[in-house]
């Protein structure tokens, strides 16, 4: 079931006239005048040529970067007045990130990597957190890999651990930056299917930056970015 557009509830994510300029002797415009609305349970692929501002847009939507113009509404709440701590807490509770190079902490096991956000949030006791982390890894086909370190896992397995970590605190939104960019076709298909299922089965909103047309075709909607702007006519 896709719970998008639930009666009376605000969109999951709204960007209004978003802009981001890097200051300097020659200011660099990363994103300009982007407005978009993403509903609950929607799977959105952001596409565009290299350097077009896709990742910059994702970092803005993920509250990792602060826009120099416009604002972002998360579940109807304006985040433009949030301080650094409030932004961090919002990321902890409502957003999960998956990056191209998994970025797992090398000294920690797969299980401990998944436990990190839960331990920081502290909403679950240690036993419940361990069980949830184990269940997430099992759901993603990582039975028996929980106690392995990242270097003992394949690329696809690492990316699935990263997805489990993104889901640890059960956030409504998953943001993925080239999640299949570093995987072989089999692993990429697996990750694509997992993200697809997150929207269909768990009602998560997934926003993914990708170059992969096959990946993008699995999304509910594709947004093309060219020169930092949404290009309504963009075709891969």
């Amino acid at each position: 079931m896709n719970p998008a557009g639930r009666e009376g509830s605000p969109p999951m994510l709204t960007a209004e006239r978003l802009g981001r300029v890097l200051p300097g002797e020659v200011p660099v415009t990363l994103v300009q005048d982007i407005s978009l609305t993403i509903d609950r349970g929607e799977f959105v692929a952001i596409m565009g040529p290299s350097g077009s501002g896709k990742s910059s847009l994702l970092y803005l939507l993920g509250l990792l970067d602060t826009p120099t113009a416009g604002r972002i509404l998360l579940d109807g709440r304006d985040t433009s007045g949030y301080g650094e701590d409030e932004l961090a807490t919002t990321r902890l509770r409502q957003l999960g990130f998956v990056f191209q190079f998994h970025f797992l902490l090398a000294e920690f096991s797969a299980l401990d990597n998944v436990l990190l956000p839960m331990r920081r949030l502290g909403a679950l006791d240690e036993g419940s957190a361990q069980r949830r982390a184990g269940a997430l890894l099992a759901q993603l086909g990582l039975d028996g890999q929980a106690h392995k370190r990242p270097h003992q896992l394949s690329g696809g397995q690492r990316q699935r651990v990263a997805i489990a970590r993104a889901l640890a605190n059960d956030p409504p939104i998953i943001l993925a930056d080239e999640p299949t960019g570093n995987l072989d076709s089999h692993a990429a298909a697996n990750v694509r299917q997992i993200l697809r299922d997150l929207t269909r089965e768990l009602g998560k909103t997934v926003i993914a930056v990708t170059h992969d047309l096959t990946f993008a075709s699995a999304a509910d909607r594709q947004i093309g970015i060219v020169d930092g702007r949404i290009d309504p006519h963009w075709r891969a």
Partner: peptide, 15 residues
């Protein structure tokens, strides 16, 4: 890099 990842996860600067 780990610091950046921890912060993206929601760890505060004070953490």
């Amino acid at each position: 890099h780990d610091i950046a990842i921890l912060k993206s996860m929601g760890f505060h600067a004070r953490d």
